[in-house]
């Protein structure tokens, strides 16, 4: 499908155009870039909420419950659920939708599942552009569920305005893991499965950690208890999300983060495009294979060769 047609469909609120655009983003189809660049001016309106936390901690169930509560508050919702792709087959089992069945027939809710396709950091490479497409489509709120996260799956912070970190009652060991990485990215902590033993203790532990953590902002992450199965604590969670939104606006944090994100995105994009350009020129040429062979045989070194190839590439492009 042509980029123009797709853009037209997305802006008219056609879900199939949105669905197709997201596939094209995932498949790195060049038309997707074209469509996104036209859609860019229609984005920046949605509030993006990230939900991350250990596998099985109840992220999908919480997302479904949150969606129900937000719908009661007349918000429209887009959801992107990321699950890991198998490094062996490249395939993926995307199962987060199971918990979101109640919203399938609600035309104000759009749900999309996504495999990581080898990308690390808790998201797929396509996630941030998919969120942008849903933003242009006109949803008020976009919720991103990351893969079941350990300490290095923190990329969601670059994309979400409000990051929710979920945890469950139980051994204090995993709090160490959380402390290392996801601790710092949380705007709101949720201790889910409040029906299980040790929930209050977990809340106390997280609060104690927050007491000693250096506070960069005026917002101290609240620690909430939820039972996503029964829905208990969910309205309070949505209240906190709205409070956080308000804080971001009023403190000017939204603006600072927006600038920071635009810079990072531009630099990442340039880096990616430049590398791709360079490699497509080189790969498969005899000269390139020769150079690699020489490095392997220790007749040349990768440092010098990299400098030379890049210099040659830049000179050629100046002409």
């Amino acid at each position: 499908m042509s980029a123009d047609k797709l853009v037209e469909g997305v802006l008219k609120g056609k879900r199939r155009s949105l669905a197709r655009l997201i596939s094209m983003i995932e498949n790195e189809d060049p038309s997707a870039d074209e469509a996104l660049s036209t859609l860019y001016k229609h984005t920046g309106k949605a509030h993006v909420i990230g939900v991350t936390g250990p596998p099985g901690s109840g992220k999908s169930t919480i997302v479904a419950r949150m969606t129900a509560e937000l719908r009661r508050r007349v918000r429209t919702i887009g959801i992107v659920c990321v699950d890991p792709s198998s490094p062996f087959s490249g395939g993926a089992l995307l199962g987060d939708r199971i918990r979101m069945q109640e919203h399938t027939l609600d035309s104000e809710v759009f749900v999309r599942s996504m495999g990581t396709r080898g990308h690390l950091g808790g998201l797929a490479r396509a996630t941030s552009d998919a969120v942008r497409a849903i933003d242009a489509f006109g949803k008020d709120i976009v919720i991103v569920e990351t893969v079941g996260a350990g300490q290095s799956e923190v990329e969601v912070v670059e994309l979400a305005h409000t990051v929710i970190v979920t945890d469950v009652p139980g051994s204090g060991d995993d709090i160490q893991a959380i402390k290392a990485g996801i601790m710092e990215i949380a705007d709101i902590f949720v201790v889910n499965k409040s029906d299980l033993d040790g929930a209050d203790k977990k809340v106390t532990e997280i609060n104690a950690m927050l007491d000693i953590a250096p506070n960069m902002e005026d917002w101290r992450p609240p620690v909430l208890l939820t039972n996503a199965n029964s829905g208990e604590g969910i309205p309070e969670l949505v209240d906190k999300i709205e409070e956080h939104m308000k804080y971001l606006h009023e403190s000017g944090t939204l603006e600072t983060r927006g600038l920071k994100r635009s810079r990072e995105e531009l630099e990442k994009l340039m880096e990616y495009k430049l590398t791709r350009e360079l490699l497509t020129k080189l790969q498969g040429t005899r000269e390139y294979d020769e150079a690699i062979k020489k490095i392997a045989e220790r007749k040349d070194d990768p440092y010098t060769v990299a400098e030379r190839l890049i210099a040659e590439f830049l000179v050629k492009h100046r002409e």
Partner: peptide, 30 residues
């Protein structure tokens, strides 16, 4: 699982799906 192991992306939607739900999910998931 077999389709996943063959390199496909499989959206699993669970039990008790109505035809309407199946079609809607299929469209959103493209």
């Amino acid at each position: 699982r077999a389709l996943r192991d063959a390199g496909m992306e499989v959206v699993y939607t669970g039990l008790r799906q109505t035809p309407e739900m199946i079609v809607e999910a299929a469209l959103q998931e493209d």
